[in-house]
Every structure is written in structure tokens, then in C-alpha cells.
Design a protein around this nucleic acid. Sequence first.
DNA 1: AATATGCTTTACGTTTACGTAAACGTCATG
DNA 2: CATGACGTTTACGTAAACGTAAAGCATATT
Lengths: 142, 142
Amino acid sequence: MPRTYSIAELARECGVTTRAIRFYEDQGMLSPLRDGQRRIYRPRDRTRLKLILRGKRLGFPLAEVREIIDLYDAPQGEDAQLHRLLAKIADRHRELEAKREDIEASLQELDAVADTCRDRLAELECGDRGGRRVKKPRRAAR
Amino acid sequence: MPRTYSIAELARECGVTTRAIRFYEDQGMLSPLRDGQRRIYRPRDRTRLKLILRGKRLGFPLAEVREIIDLYDAPQGEDAQLHRLLAKIADRHRELEAKREDIEASLQELDAVADTCRDRLAELECGDRGGRRVKKPRRAAR
DNA sequence: AATATGCTTTACGTTTACGTAAACGTCATG
DNA sequence: CATGACGTTTACGTAAACGTAAAGCATATT
């Protein structure tokens, strides 16, 4: 048999509280086995938890996270179902790429500020006391 | 003089409520001019609002969003200040790249599910009633 | 003058995503 | 046997991010 985890183990490994994990279960996002009262998490539960947390890091509300991870283990069903599934996947795809573009824009602007910042530092450190201007070398585009 | 916006204009353009905009002001993230009681937004206010919304889309809490956009108009000050600023920028940079990796992983897994899904569809549509297996052609990597 | 439109402040309500405490069960160990 | 370490359920509390009236001011139109 594969391997199992206690709730505390999972919590430690994933950097969340046990409360949070139970909460996700309440929301129908996890369904661990039971040994009497105790929850037993299998690798697939662990994977789902990690997916949940990744969704959260990306700013999706839990309700959406659930829809997303439900996509992951759904590719059964008949024709119409599969087409609906593909449509949903395409939606999420677009959503994620929009987010990626947001990130890339942010990174660029951040880099621009960093450049400005380094230019200022260069001015200061070469003992520039007056209004003399330093030639700003164009940074190579990454 | 450049151009100005009323709160309703900005709200419409950016797809948020006026309540939200006022809330961001309460949090010290916007400081529009006033014409008596009324708020007057200049281009820079508009830009800041868009930055706020982008930060939100990326899942940052407003408190962090404020720190981030504060980085944008801060590159003044003396040596030590500038170094602290650069450090903060580097932190945010790492944070954003981590998020981008999360996104890329999500996109890959999503694509994998889509492939599985299309394979199933192919099986169905070529009248596969039995357990016959369809050769899965490797999809070209984008 | 009255109505509409757009803005204002003040303030209480709501949803999400848990935190935190209480009160209890179950082993294993000192 | 009692003291922890770990788990459980139930339930109330809370921070963030607004939503939703309520009540009022200012200008424009009918």
C-alpha cells in the first residue's frame, strides 16, 4: 500500500494549519479516508491539497479553486460532457494566461524602477554633488 | 491641463464600484484632488487604480498591493534608502516569478487534462464501442 | 418649484477563509 | 494512573474587502 499521512503531517509539510485542512474538507474539496474518527490522507489527497494551495496563491477564491481541481479528475462521461469540459478548460486557460500577462507587466515595471534606482545610486556614489547628469546606459533586454 | 475623471467615470472604465474606489482611498492608496466635496482624479490616480486592480487580480491582499505600488514612486532618497528599496524590489520580483511558475504548472496540467479529454472524444467518435485502444499521437509542444 | 442626476459622508451588514477556544476521545509513556 | 501528544466536533470570533442603505448637498432640467 502506497503511503498515508496524518492531518498534522500534511499540515506541516504544506505550511497550513489543521484547521484549514478540515475547512477545505467541509467545503467538499478533500475527502480523506477514516480510521474510526481519524482522518487518513492518501497521496491523491495530498496532491489535491497542494492544488488547492496553489490555486489560493494565484488568488482564486476557494469556490473557484474547487471548480478548477474538479476539472482535473473529471475526464469521463459522454460526448456532450466532454465538450463542456473542454470549454471550461479553455476558459481557465485564458484566465491563467491573462494572469501571466499581468505578472509580466508587473515584472517589467518593477525592473524599470530598479533601473531608475540604480542610476540614482550611481550618481550618488561617484560623488555627484551638483546637478551633473550621468549617462544612462541602456540595459540589455532580457 | 491633462485630463481629469469623476469617480463614476473611473469606476465604469475600470469595472469597479465607486464604493471600492473610496475604500481604496480610505486605505491610503489613492489621494485624488477635490473640487469642494467632489473627488477629481488625474491620470496618475487612474494609473494607481489600475495598479491596485492588477495587484488584486494577482491575489495580493490590499496591504501588500499598497506596499508594491509605493515602490513605484519612491526612487528618491539617500544611499541606504535606495538599497533598501532595491532589496524590496528583489523580494517582489522573486514573489512574482514564483507565481508565474505556479501559473505555468497549472497551464501544463490543464493542457494535459485537455489532451486526455480529446483522446476520449476521439475514441467515442470513431464508433469505438469495445475496449479497443486508440493510438495516442504525441501532441507537438507549444 | 419640483424632479432628476451625481456626488458626498456615515454606518451597519455580508461574505470569505479561516482563528481560537471548549470539551471530549485515544493511545503511549513516565 | 495521570500526563501528554494527537486527534475529534461544535461553535463563536475575526480580519479583509467591500455591499447596501440612509440622509443630505449641488447642479441641471422640466
